[in-house]
Design a protein around this nucleic acid. Structure first.
Length: 491
RNA sequence: GGCGGCAUAGCCAAGUGGUAAGGCGACGGUCUGCAAAACCGUUAUUCACCGGUUCAAAUCCGGUUGCCGCCUCCA
C-alpha cells in the first residue's frame, strides 16, 4: 500500500510518508518564459502531471505548485532584441505555455505563482540570509556564501573542494568563492529593477523557488521536482538558501525526470534540433505524446524519433478501436446467455478485468512505474478483445457488465495518465478526417468506391473486388469486411 | 579532471536476490471468397564482457569495454 519514491537526496527508493497525514505538498519547477516550450518541457510537465494525478487518485489532498520564472537574463535579452519591455516577452510566453500545455492535457496546478509577484518575499529571505551571515553584499549585489552552509552539495553529491578543482566556472572577481551564487543582482542601466535594501536590482534565479515553495507549502514540504539538470546548481542552491534561512529541512523527497534526446542527440540550440510542443502537436494527437513518455520510466532518458511516436500512435489507435468496439457492442440487445461459450474463457477475462486496478496500483506505487502500468493496460485490452470475440455482436447478461467494467477502468484509471479522454467515436472519426485531408480524398469518394466493390463482391467477382481493395490500399486506405459491412481506415 | 547514470530479443521497454512484463515487427494457426481486424501460439536457457559473494544474481561486489548526463543557461 505504501508508495515508494526514489529520492535524489538519498539516492534510494523510500517509503513516502507525507508530513501531514493524507495531505501532500508538491512543488515542480516550471519554465522560464522567454521562448516556446519544447518536448523536454513537455516530458517534465507530463511526469509531474501524472504524479499529481496519481497522488490525487490515491486519495491525498494535493497542493501542487508550479511556478513561472518571469524575470531573468534570457528574458531581458530577448526583450532587448525585440525592443519591448520584458513583461511583454514574459506575458507572451506564459500565454504560449498555457496553449501548448493545455494541448498536452495537463491538469492545472493548485497555484501557479510568478517570480515577479514575490519580489518582496525574496527581499525578506535575502535579508535574513544577510543577517544570519550566510550572505554578503558586494557593491549592489548579494551573494550566498556556499562555505557557510555545511551541507552544501548534499543533493548533487559533490563537495566544494572537488568542484573548485575541476571548475570551468569563470571567476567572478566579486565573489569570495567562485561557487557562491547571486541572491540579488544590481541592475544595469535600462534593465528592469526593484528597490531593495541593496539598491535597485533584481533577484537571482534560485531565490524565487525557495520563496514561492515556502509561501504555498510551508518551510518544510513533501515533494520538490524538476528536470535532472536542475539538481545542480538550482536545487542545490535552493536547499542552501532555504535551510540556511529557516534552520529546518526544506523539501523531503526530491524527484527528477530524465531528458529527451532527439534521434540520439541532445537537444540544443546549437544543434538546431529543438522540437517544440507546437511542432509535435501539429503531427500527433496529444495522447500519442503522453503514451510515448509514459512507456518509459520517468528517470530514464528517452529518445525521440519519428518511429517511436508512430509506434505510440499505433498503440493509441488500437486502444481507441477496442474502446469503440466495446461501445458498439454495448449498444446491442443483451441476450440471456449462450451455452456454447466456454466458461473458462469468461472466467479468465473476468479475473483479468477484476484484478486490473490492483495491478495498476502495484506498478504505480513502486516509484511511479508507468511503463509497467501501461503493460497492464495492454493486458486488459487483450482480454476485452477476447471477450468481444466471444460476444460476437450478441452480448450476454454476463458479458455486457464485464465489458462495461473494462470501459470504466479505461475511463477512471486512464485519467491518471491523461489517456483515453476522448470519445472513441470522435477520436476515430478525427483520425480519419485528418488522414483524408493528407490523401486528398473525401469520405464520399471512398464510400462510393466501397459500394462499387461490394457490388462486385455480390457478383462474386473477386478479381475486381481485390483490384479495388488493392488500389485503395496503395493510396493509404485499408478495408475491413465485417458481418455488419465494410469499414475503412487509414493504413 | 571531478561526480553521477546507463548497457535486457530485430527494434522500443519493465524488471534491483528466487529463476526474463508489455509494445512494435516477424512467422504459424483460428476466422475470411481472399484479406484486414481480433484472438491463440512461436519469436532472449538468457540480461555488454571477465571474475567474485550466495543454496540462488539481469539484479549485490570488484574489474574491463562502450555510451550518456551534470560540473556554464537549460525540463
Amino acid at each position: 500500500m505504501t508508495l515508494r519514491i526514489y529520492n535524489t537526496l538519498t539516492g534510494k527508493k523510500e517509503d513516502f510518508i507525507p508530513l501531514r497525514e493524507n495531505k501532500v505538498g508538491i512543488y515542480a519547477c516550471g519554465v522560464t518564459v522567454y521562448d516556446l516550450c519544447h518536448i523536454g518541457h513537455a516530458r517534465s510537465s507530463v511526469v509531474f502531471d501524472v504524479i499529481y494525478r496519481y497522488l490525487h487518485y490515491r486519495g491525498y489532498e494535493v497542493t501542487f505548485v508550479r511556478n513561472f520564472t518571469d524575470i531573468d537574463d534570457k528574458i531581458i535579452k530577448r526583450a532587448n532584441e525585440e525592443g519591448v519591455d520584458y513583461q511583454v516577452i514574459a506575458g507572451k510566453y506564459i500565454e504560449e505555455f498555457y496553449t501548448d500545455m493545455g494541448g498536452v492535457g495537463l491538469e492545472r496546478p493548485t497555484f501557479e505563482p510568478k517570480a515577479t509577484d514575490h519580489i518582496s518575499g525574496m527581499i525578506d529571505l535575502i535579508s535574513i540570509l544577510v543577517e544570519k551571515g550566510f550572505a554578503y553584499r558586494k557593491d549592489g549585489d548579494v551573494f550566498f556564501s556556499v562555505e557557510k552552509f555545511k551541507d552544501y552539495g548534499k543533493l548533487s553529491k559533490r563537495n566544494i573542494e572537488e568542484m573548485q578543482a575541476g571548475a570551468r566556472v569563470e571567476i567572478d572577481e566579486k565573489k569570495e568563492n567562485p561557487l557562491d551564487f547571486a541572491l540579488w543582482k544590481s541592475s544595469k542601466p535600462g534593465e528592469p529593477f526593484w528597490d531593495s535594501p541593496w539598491g535597485k536590482g533584481r533577484p537571482g534565479w534560485h531565490i524565487e523557488c525557495s520563496v514561492m515553495s515556502q509561501k504555498y507549502l510551508g518551510e518544510t514540504f513533501d515533494i520538490h521536482g524538476g528536470g535532472k539538470d536542475l539538481i545542480f546548481p538550482h536545487h542545490e542552491n535552493e536547499i542552501a538558501q532555504s535551510e540556511a534561512a529557516t534552520g529546518k529541512p526544506f523539501a523531503r523527497y526530491w524527484i527528477h525526470n530524465g531528458f529527451v534526446n532527439i534521434n540520439r542527440e541532445k537537444m540544443s540550440k546549437s544543434l538546431g534540433n529543438i522540437l517544440t510542443i507546437k511542432d509535435i502537436l501539429k503531427e500527433w494527437h496529444p495522447e500519442v505524446l503522453r503514451l510515448f513518455f509514459l512507456s518509459h520510466h520517468y528517470r530514464s532518458p528517452v529518445d525521440y524519433s519519428e518511429d517511436s511516436l508512430r509506434e505510440a500512435n499505433t498503440g493509441l489507435d488500437r486502444f481507441y478501436m477496442t474502446l469503440h468496439a466495446i461501445q458498439e457492442e454495448l449498444k446491442k440487445p443483451v441476450a440471456p446467455s449462450k451455452k456454447e461459450i466456454d466458461p473458462a474463457a469468461i472466467a479468465n477475462c473476468r479475473q483479468a478485468i477484476d484484478s486490473f486496478p490492483s495491478l495498476f496500483e502495484e506498478a504505480m506505487k513502486d516509484d511511479f512505474n508507468t511503463a509497467q502500468a501501461l503493460g497492464y493496460f495492454y493486458d486488459l485490452q487483450r482480454n476485452l478483445n477476447s471477450l468481444l470475440d466471444i460476444s460476437k455482436g450478441h452480448p450476454t447478461q454476463e458479458i455486457a457488465p464485464m465489458l462495461k467494467q473494462g470501459l470504466d477502468h479505461f475511463s477512471k484509471i486512464g485519467w491518471v495518465f491523461g489517456l483515453f479522454r476522448e470519445d472513441p467515436e470522435d477520436y476515430l472519426a478525427r483520425q480519419r478526417k485528418n488522414g483524408l485531408k493528407k490523401l486528398n480524398l473525401t469520405e464520399e469518394q471512398i464510400l462510393h468506391i466501397i459500394d462499387d466493390r461490394n457490388l462486385a463482391r455480390k457478383e462474386k467477382n473477386w478479381k475486381r473486388a481485390d483490384e479495388i481493395r488493392n488500389d485503395l490500399l496503395s493510396r493509404g486506405i485499408a478495408l475491413e469486411d465485417t458481418p455488419s459491412g465494410t469499414n475503412w481506415k487509414l493504413k
